[in-house]
Design a protein around this nucleic acid. Structure first.
Ligand SMILES: NC(=O)c1ccc[n+]([C@@H]2O[C@H](COP(=O)([O-])OP(=O)(O)OC[C@H]3O[C@@H](n4cnc5c(N)ncnc54)[C@H](O)[C@@H]3O)[C@@H](O)[C@H]2O)c1
Ligand SMILES: NC(=O)c1ccc[n+]([C@@H]2O[C@H](COP(=O)([O-])OP(=O)(O)OC[C@H]3O[C@@H](n4cnc5c(N)ncnc54)[C@H](O)[C@@H]3O)[C@@H](O)[C@H]2O)c1
Lengths: 205, 205
DNA sequence: TACCATTTGTGAAGCGTATCACAGAAATAT
DNA sequence: ATATTTCTGTGATACGCTTCACAAATGGTA
């Protein structure tokens, strides 16, 4: 659902302005800064049961907390990364640094030369140990950055081991029981789409 | 529009099976392999004016050509990459290898140590030369992998130099004239969304 | 106090997309 | 030859999400 993404975006902006004065924001400010409309903001906050104050807007710190209660697992979620190629190795330091609640705690690669090491505080395992580690660490979220030919199988193994959400970067169709959320970020398709629209765009405008 | 993405996905599958027998596919096969429905496939192909044959389906090579005519620039599109950090350096070899029509022909970074080199056949320039190179190479599509704080400005410079489509990986709101297509792939937001749904998913199902 | 300006909360309407469902067409069986 | 099956093409319908529009609330102002 799109609302979930927007809530994340709201929160990111709210964190930037937290602590400043005033301590509230109006729906139109939030909308302006996050690329949506005031009505959409109000509807979203209504939907998560967060009320503002007429003429004062929404309390910033309270709203950050409310979005956190709605979106986050209280203790954060351990995340697995499968595939330590070019893309996987770019993602690893990013989540090690940036995100407090979503921490990559285990990485896997079928290439034995990549196992056994520790990169950015994350231990790298051979792919054969995937099920064991996923179960032991109670991992329910995974990022999949293996070649397309290996993606389906890897996703199935993850699911069988208990993973319930997969962010897939491989250009492959992944079909799993609907209890498992799969989002495919297909960079090539996105770029083709952008090129399509860029081509039909006037030079000036 | 979603249709554009689906057409790319259809084509990717069609290329896999091109040359095999039979030389046609049914809408239900295409749908099955690409994660959509037969009616959707037929509607999409109708929309680009490609007709199939009752009881025989759609000619594979003809359909690949028709999608190409619809989606692609005849000579391919030169692409710029702005930001040679972890993510940018992962994308560069990928598009150098994989994609014939979308070729990264120029990369930019504000860090002078990264300029002047040639990586994967792509020349890297200092950020100061951005406008000049974009204009010279007639680049209309760009990938943006700079830090969030630098994204807006970089996008504006790209647009002023003639770029009409931007694939943005920075967690920043980019507002440009509507003649410029901007697609933001926000990996963090996507992962938060997946974690949200994963958390509400039953352990078995 | 009375009025005005502004902002929230939300039912209702609108919009774009996906799906349904069936007429028409072609291959195959009888 | 005719019936049957199975597929396409598409008007109509349904659906989910967004936006509209306004009542209610509240702070400011005269
Ligand atoms: N790199 C990019 O810019 C980019 C862009 C778009 C899409 N993608 C997609 O992302 C995926 C990864 O891309 P990449 O460039 O990192 O590829 P890569 O070839 O550099 O890395 C893939 C890694 O996966 C490992 N691997 C293979 N099979 C495995 C398995 N069964 N279990 C665990 N690990 C396995 C390989 O050893 C390798 O380290 C690919 O599907 C690619 O199409 C990448
Ligand atoms: N790496 C990831 O896995 C990841 C994941 C999600 C989002 N992102 C986002 O993608 C972007 C890039 O991530 P990264 O990990 O590659 O960051 P990075 O810091 O490794 O790289 C950023 C690069 O951009 C260059 N740069 C800075 N300002 C510039 C400018 N004005 N013009 C040209 N180049 C400039 C820097 O010199 C650096 O090389 C960031 O916005 C980040 O938030 C990255």
């Amino acid at each position: 659902m799109k609302r979930i993404e927007r809530l994340s975006v709201y929160r990111r902006f709210l964190r930037e302005i937290a602590g400043q004065e005033p301590s509230s924001v109006y729906s139109h400010e939030l909308a302006e800064k996050t690329g949506t409309t005031p009505a959409q903001v109000r509807r979203d906050l209504m939907e998560i049961g967060f009320a503002g104050h007429t003429k004062k807007g929404y309390g910033i710190s309270e709203l950050i907390a409310a979005i956190g209660d709605y979106l986050d697992s209280p203790d954060g979620d351990p995340v697995a990364l499968v595939g330590l190629g070019n893309l996987g190795r770019a993602l690893l330091p990013f989540f090690a640094d940036h995100h407090p609640k979503l921490k990559i705690v285990a990485a896997f690669d079928s290439d034995p030369r990549k196992a056994g090491r520790v990169i950015c505080g994350c231990r790298c395992y051979p792919a054969a140990e995937l099920e064991e580690v996923i179960r032991r660490e109670k991992i329910r979220v995974a990022i999949l950055t293996v070649p397309a030919a290996a993606a389906r199988k890897a996703a199935e193994r993850l699911t069988a081991a208990g993973v319930r959400g997969i962010l897939n970067f491989a250009p492959a169709l992944i079909r799993l029981p609907k209890a498992v959320t799969v989002e495919t970020m297909d960079i090539t398709i996105a770029l083709e789409k952008i090129a399509f629209f860029a081509r039909r765009s006037p030079d000036e405008g």
